[in-house]
Structures are given as structure tokens and as C-alpha cells.
């Protein structure tokens, strides 16, 4: 039982997946919800490693206000180990070289280190900083960070067609009390178990954000990844587009690409 071993952003894309074979006996909605996510996870197993370039466009109601470019690498955890990921910022230029290393863990908080190139300093980050915005965007750290199936409990709600695709609608509830959400409602397509849309409800249980994914492509004949994600904040009217390009799998990364030394020379 491995985690969804995708790295941060990618994991997130993946948070869009899955489904299990229809059971013969009567299932509780909780069991069915879990099975849907378990299937999504299983379908994403064996990606070994991947790399991608990312572009984030921050917008207010009318127009784009700024951009961030990043490059991301991820390595699938072996056995019981969680995934590892390394994200490097290329812009804004004053942040160039700033890098974030994550070691995911299944039964405890992830380890995260931030490298500040101006000071040459590696700082370990507290894991409770989950709900804050990531780089001033509408994505929070927990949206971006890798997620394990154990991070949530689930409940199947109903079947529904979303943009012409048959979907399961599943509600997930974060286990971590530091999460910024009470629940997330997701539309998962029945054919490929990809999350097409998610609605996030804040701690007061009011609708905070909606994520939609677009431009799915299949890699290695198996792994589906969206080329674009759109997160809209309904309370502020701001939104963030996240574009992913040059996605590559099985690029030959190893654990030595994910330690403090590689963090310091990441580009």
C-alpha cells in the first residue's frame, strides 16, 4: 500500500484519480469513497520518478498580476517510504534558486526543508504551516504538497455527469487538524479516476475555492496528468492558473537527488 507518491503539484494533479470495481455486497458510502481513492492511487503506482516545468499565473478579478516559474522533480517512495520531491523557483528573480525539499511520510508529518540562496541557509519548515498560501497564490501548501490516501477520510455522495463525463462525487475530510478545510467535494471520472473538479470548504464550512483541471494527457500508457489547473477563490475573486509542461517520467532520478546537498545546488 503505497502513498500517492506524487510530488507536490503533481500529486495534486493526481489527487484526481481512481475507482474500484463495483462491489457485490452492500457498501457504506464511506467504504465506497475510500475505494474510489484507493483505486486512483493504485492506478498511479509505479511512476518511478518524474520531472516537469511549471508556470503559475496569479490573477485578480480582471487581469494577471504576476507569474512564478518552477521546476519540479519527484521520486516514488519504495516500500513503506513516502515520495520525495524537490521544487526550485526560477522566478520571480529575487527568489531564483529558492528550493523546497519534501520527504513524505505515511504515518507522521512530512519533512520539509527550504533553501535560501542569498544566505546559503537550509531551514527546516514546520509542518503546521499547511493552510497558508503557497507563494502568494490561491493554492495553499496543503494543495501543493504531496498527499497520502491516509490524509483523509472519505464519503461517496452520488454519481453525476461533469462536462460530459460520468463521475463519482466524493467528499473527503482532512485528518490533520491544521488543515484549512472541513471538507473537499471532488468529481472523479469513472473511466480513468482523474479528479476533474474539487470544491474546498473552509473551517467555517463555507465554499472557499474551486479547482478545475484541464488538458489531461496520458504518459507511459498509464499515468494521467492535467496540463492546466485553475484554482478560483470565491471569497476574494482572485484566481491562480498552474500550467505544467515538459512532463517526463522515468528520468533516472535517485535518492541522491533529494537530500540537503542536492537542495543547495538545485536549478
Amino acid at each position: 500500500m503505497s502513498n500517492i507518491k506524487n510530488n507536490k503539484l503533481i500529486a495534486f494533479f493526481i489527487a484526481c484519480s481512481i475507482f474500484a470495481t463495483a462491489p457485490l455486497h452492500a457498501e457504506t458510502p464511506e467504504e465506497k469513497g475510500y475505494k474510489i481513492y484507493k483505486e486512483a492511487e493504485d492506478r498511479d503506482e509505479g511512476f518511478v520518478d518524474n520531472q516537469a516545468e511549471m508556470l503559475m499565473i496569479l490573477k485578480n478579478k480582471q487581469e494577471a498580476t504576476s507569474e512564478r516559474e518552477m521546476s519540479v522533480k519527484a521520486l516514488e517512495g519504495k516500500g513503506d517510504e513516502g515520495d520525495m520531491s524537490l521544487m526550485v523557483f526560477l522566478s520571480p528573480r529575487d527568489q531564483k534558486g529558492t528550493a523546497l525539499l519534501t520527504h513524505q511520510h505515511k504515518n507522521r508529518d512530512d519533512d520539509q526543508w527550504l533553501y535560501l540562496p542569498a544566505l546559503k541557509r537550509v531551514k527546516k519548515i514546520a509542518s503546521s504551516k499547511k493552510s497558508g498560501p503557497f507563494m502568494g497564490s490561491e493554492f495553499s501548501f496543503e494543495d501543493i504538497g504531496g498527499q497520502s490516501i491516509e490524509d483523509y477520510t472519505y464519503k461517496y455522495l452520488r454519481d453525476e455527469t461533469y462536462e460530459g463525463q460520468d463521475c463519482f462525487v466524493v467528499e473527503s475530510y482532512p485528518v490533520d487538524k491544521n488543515s484549512g478545510y472541513t471538507r473537499i467535494v471532488s468529481w472523479v471520472d469513472k473511466e480513468h479516476y482523474r479528479t476533474l473538479k474539487s470544491e474546498f470548504y473552509d473551517r467555517k464550512n463555507s465554499h472557499l475555492k474551486t479547482l478545475t483541471t484541464d488538458g489531461f494527457k496520458q504518459y507511459e500508457g498509464k499515468f494521467w496528468r492535467p496540463s492546466e489547473l485553475l484554482m478560483v477563490n470565491h471569497q476574494t475573486g482572485r484566481s491562480t492558473v498552474l500550467k505544467q509542461t515538459n512532463i517526463a517520467f522515468k528520468t533516472g532520478l535517485s535518492e541522491s537527488d533529494f537530500n540537503k546537498n542536492s537542495l543547495k545546488r538545485a536549478r
Binding site: 496569479l58 529575487d94 497558508g132 507563494m135
Partner: peptide, 11 residues
């Protein structure tokens, strides 16, 4: 010492 991070798009 006290440090405020606004976490806005201007860091």
C-alpha cells in the same frame, strides 16, 4: 524578535 510574513504575491 517578531517576524510577519504576509504571504502575498509580493512576498
Amino acid at each position: 524578535g517578531g517576524r510577519f510574513s504576509f504571504n502575498d504575491e509580493f512576498d
